[in-house]
Design a protein around this nucleic acid. Sequence first.
DNA 1: CTTAGGG
DNA 2: CCCTAAG
Length: 504
Amino acid sequence: METIADPVVYKLVRVEGDGRLVPATDDEIMEVEDFLVDEQIELPVVTNAGNVECISNESSSGKPQKESSEGLLPSEDTEADAKLSSHLEEIVPSSALSLDGSINESGRKGERSKHPDGPIESGSSASLICLSSKLDFYASNEEICLDNLSIRELHELFRATFGRETTVKDKLWLKRRIAMGLTNSCDVSTTTFTIINNKLLKDKDDSLQNTNGMHAEGSDGGPKNLGYEDSPASHSSQLENHQVVSAKRSGNLSEEEYGTKIAGHEETSLTSCARPLRNVPSNEKTSNERTIVTRLDSLGGSGVQVPYVSRVRRSRPRKNIMALMKFDPSGMGVTAKLFATEPEKDKQRSVMSTIEHGKNLVLKQTDSSEDNSDDSIVAVPTVKGGMRRKHHRAWTLVEVMKLVEGVSKCGTGRWSEIKRLSFASYSYRTSVDLKDKWRNLLKASFAQNLLMMSRKHAAVPIPAPILLKVRELAEMHAQVPPNVGPRLATNGSRSLHQTRSGYL
DNA sequence: CTTAGGG
DNA sequence: CCCTAAG
């Protein structure tokens, strides 16, 4: 029990009544595994060779770059990962949005299961409970442990993180992906997935490097926007030219998602994907939304070119399309009709989304189960007779992290700057959106102390470390909300860590 | 056009 | 998220 051979073992702990941590036994682990496993994973674990590409966003350089490597999945894992990591380190400092250096040591100290701040309280400790079977890991203050999650949970977390569904059943792939998102780094070359303060806890000796990264935080942290693009090359025909062959045709596992993009990086991804195909210059971004990128899809088995509609979509493939159809009694093309219906005051955003939907509808309708084909677009009547589309697009953790990072870099108020730097690839987030989101984050970050410790039903519960960072920045910019007690304002970021029992 | 703030 | 006022 003392020798930590299996990385998973020391993650699995139980909090005793007195607050002590008791390592789980192997049996317990097995039990948990069994318990967590739900019906859908009798499927064999995916063993396809993976292919992951990481694209560094052009945040400051203005040029999307791209690195890729083969195989991220079990088989060639280690080697490929090493390669990938080394590649990435060149582009992206592995530190990204480090939120707090206070637990840097935890990764190297002998007892990883102990919180550096001392013993864990039983009550609201909420910091080291990895056995949570729900989304509790968001409530945990610093640690997110992916190792013991069921596929289902991983799917949930995936959605929260990236804002899109996935059907990939490969745990390792999911964990890796989520870890990438949460750490904002592609360097996830590890076999165990515990994330502390948005840093992946390494089980190797690269923790040192990792630690350095954490200290290199702050305003000069440098651009670390990552674009991820996943597309494990399970089949011979791989994205040589970034033409993704729909895995659906291959018939085996439901690995469609392997060929899809991660939320939010579409613009960048698209641009870089487009280049080989159409020689799109990188400054195409100015007219970005016009760029329609196609990918080779295997619709109908004949490799048709499908406009790559990269917007993130969550569930309900057709429903909303029907909603749009409502305004089309004439049976006219959806796109056309909407154009007609829309008052000219409509912003590009709406128009483009309309186009996207149009394309999506037309070209993807044969696509039976792609779950990425819509989000909540609701048409609301306007006083002036027109229709306006309300676009509720949930903020993903990745986006939130980017926002926080942006604020830390540019300060609050310079939303368009942040938009340019960190959200260049997110065509749907306007600077106003950023501002609004920040306002909400601000509220949340301070509200955390007052009430709500674990609202399980929060749409996307923002991990505590991020909220912490938000509050930090808020204070840094004198944005402390009036309603928050002065004590908190002065105690600042420490308060959260110092908190012994949830309240001060 | 961008920001701030109210709705 | 939308809208508006104001710089």
